[in-house]
Amino acid sequence: MGGTVIDHDEAGAVRPSTLAWVSRQLEAGERVVGTEALHGGITAEMRRLTIGARDGGTRDLVLRSFVDPYFVEHAEDLLTREADGLALLTGTGVPAPAPVAVDATATQCEYPSLLMTHLPGRTVLDDEELEARVPLLARQLVTIHALRPADRPQEYKAWTTADNVVPPAGADPVTWAAATDVIRKPAPPYEGRLLHRDFHPGNVLFDVSPPSTADPRITGVVDWVQTSWGPADLDVAHCSSNLAMLHGPAWGLRFAEAYEEAGGVLAAAADERLSWRLLDALAFAAGVEWVARPWREAGRAELTTRAVEERLDAYVAALLDALG
């Protein structure tokens, strides 16, 4: 669900067999002249590779490698899906990386890996200027959902079930029991859309320099590992949950409004909207530390696991009040 980076190698070095594979993907005369470990997510090693050419020019690529045993086991599906998804986005106007090469089964690399182009910009996770960024996030998601690919990705998968929901410590048991009962019912019918499936501020890059001289703009949407086909409500729900935990429950509710203001279409019935929204929010209950840790590493030190759990609890209650 959440992001892209574990730094297992502080030096940023790429393992020899992987480096040799990368080198075979480069143009004549090019070579890797620098590597930098990227930080901020939870599922993979990510490195920015600086590629030098004979004429002294450079360009950057990004290397994703799954090293955790769980993700290595699922890497063939995940990396192939991301590479296919990125290829599908080429030429659409969605600012996504372009795939360069993939070794999803680690035939040539030490670990399953995907090589892709590098996008400018950085993630922005602080509260400042959030009011300006939320409509940009919403408009970007509407643009993604408007795409009609000739080849559909696989159907979405739910990330929790009613039987697996474990309320966070201190959560109101009555509220969580009511929320769990909502997702115990069959999923509502929906019109399928192309889903990013992990769309949230940690996977969106902004051009924020120079500061205070221009409005923020989105320069990239990354981490397409979970690309799926399903209801627009589910992508909106996921971004809403993240905004609620990052910035407070009111921002989780605000994002759905911004999505509709941008021309997006959500389920017509309140109970259907509630179902999708809770299906996503409740999936975070058992893994709050997973998402909170990279936020703290990115500078949000106040977002302790307990603080984020309290926001998630308040957001679930707010959803039931607003849509229940």
Rank of each mutant, 00 (worst) to 15 (best):
R152Y: 13
D313S: 15
D223I: 04
Q108G: 15
L147C: 04
L141T: 03
R24N: 14
V165W: 00
L86S: 01
R296D: 10
V174A: 14
A101D: 07
E73C: 11
R277I: 10
L38W: 05
L319W: 03
T80S: 14
V265M: 10
F66D: 00
E10Q: 15
A104K: 10
L61Q: 00
E110R: 14
E128T: 15
T161E: 08
A169R: 12
A298T: 08
Y315E: 04
S228D: 04
A101Y: 04
W251M: 13
D7F: 05
R47H: 08
F66I: 09
T227N: 06
G12H: 03
M116L: 10
A317L: 12
F206Y: 05
T92I: 07
T304L: 01
A75N: 05
A20G: 12
V72S: 08
D151R: 14
V33T: 13
L194H: 02
Q154H: 15
A106C: 09
M46Y: 04
G202H: 01
P167V: 01
E10L: 11
W290G: 14
A314W: 05
L274H: 02
R48W: 10
P189A: 09
N203A: 08
G3R: 00
A150I: 11
G57A: 13
G263C: 07
A37P: 09
I218E: 00
M245T: 10
T18E: 06
E302C: 11
D60K: 12
G52C: 05
I42R: 14
P188S: 09
G299K: 08
I42Y: 14
I6F: 10
A286T: 11
M46D: 08
E131I: 12
I6D: 07
D84E: 15
T219N: 02
T43C: 13
Y70C: 13
P153W: 01
T92W: 04
H145D: 00
R152Q: 15
R48N: 09
V288K: 00
W159V: 11
E191F: 11
T160N: 07
W229M: 12
I144H: 00
H145S: 01
T90Q: 15
T180D: 04
V33R: 09
